[in-house]
């Protein structure tokens, strides 16, 4: 069986240009959802086609790609997408945040701070933050155009009325550059502060909904709240059992059938780095002691 070679990164060049034009518009209007002609991809909607198209349009032969899913490099989706790009673009891949030039992520922001020159590509299911209260697309577009965001606070009001506090814990809406309100994709609200004043370029792609939006580097991103119920980062009661981190987002892992559980860092690279540093320090201390 002959295999026809793919164009670099799967998409044809004209499509990439179309997507790059959309990205440029998105960067020019931070937080604004730019419609784009989302292509048929070799994975179904809901599996990251938006993010994959963004990466495909941005990636070059010299890039180093990292792909994470819920913070982990080794889950099915991360592995598949990484393999996809390895096959169609033959680019170097990595699990180390600092070594990557492009990081495609599903539902988490890496713990390691990003730097200028890096691009974070988010996979977005529903780009429209107003959708839950306003089903009409015509109306939501008008609301964004006119900056009519009162209804976003209605949602937060409802949370407080029902639960006593703002119960939204992921996909927490934020205002970009003081203008557009966006849904940062289903990242935990723990990650929201990382969006603000980030040195890297952040781009968001929704394949099924056909929208691209972006936060340029060093842009102000403010999570919505009330004066008397200010935005609070999630705090964990425990530390990671592997590396002892108290400042990273923890996954809860059920260990047995009798309710045993442990908390571990969601960001596998971050956790492993910490563990190896601790191991190195332990060895050095042992050497010094001898």
């Amino acid at each position: 069986m002959t295999s026809r070679p793919y164009n670099f990164a799967y998409l044809d060049e004209q499509t990439k240009r179309m997507i790059r034009r959309a990205i440029l518009k998105a960067v020019a209007i931070p937080g604004y959802q730019v419609p784009f002609a989302s292509r048929e991809m070799p994975m179904p909607y809901g599996w990251g086609t938006g993010g994959v198209q963004l990466t495909a349009a941005l990636i070059g032969p010299e890039d180093v790609l990292k792909v994470i899913d819920q913070g982990a490099d080794d889950t099915t989706n991360a592995v598949s997408i990484r393999a996809f790009f390895a096959k169609t673009a033959d680019v170097a891949t990595t699990t180390e945040t600092e070594a990557a030039t492009i990081i495609q992520t599903r539902h988490r922001v890496p713990e390691t701070p990003l730097n200028e020159g890096q691009i974070l590509v988010y996979q977005v299911p529903i780009p429209e933050p107003l959708r839950f209260l306003e089903p009409r697309e015509t109306e939501t577009r008008t609301m964004h155009a006119l900056g009519e965001y009162g209804v976003m606070h209605v949602k937060l009001y409802e949370d407080i009325a029902r639960h006593g506090h703002i119960a939204t814990t992921y996909a927490y809406p934020a205002r970009v550059a003081g203008r557009y309100v966006m849904d940062p994709s289903p990242i935990p609200k723990f990650d929201n502060p990382k969006l603000d004043d980030c040195p890297a370029l952040q781009v968001f792609g929704a394949g099924r909904e056909k929208r691209i939006y972006a936060i340029p580097p060093y842009t102000k991103v403010v999570s919505l709240d009330f004066e008397d119920h200010p935005f609070e980062r999630t705090k964990f009661d425990s530390a990671c059992v592997f590396c002892g981190a108290t400042d990273s987002f923890l996954d809860e892992v059920v260990t047995d059938d009798s309710g045993g559980r442990m908390f571990v860092c969601s960001d596998t690279d971050y956790c492993e780095k910490r563990q190896s540093k601790q191991a190195t320090v332990a060895v050095e201390e042992k050497d010094a002691a001898e």
């Binding site: 009519e148 965001y149 009162g150 606070h153 009001y157 407080i160 709240d225 009330f226 004066e227 008397d228």
Partner: peptide
């Protein structure tokens, strides 16, 4: 809220 009130 639409007119800008932010105090729950």
């Amino acid at each position: 809220m639409a007119l800008g009130d932010r105090h729950y």
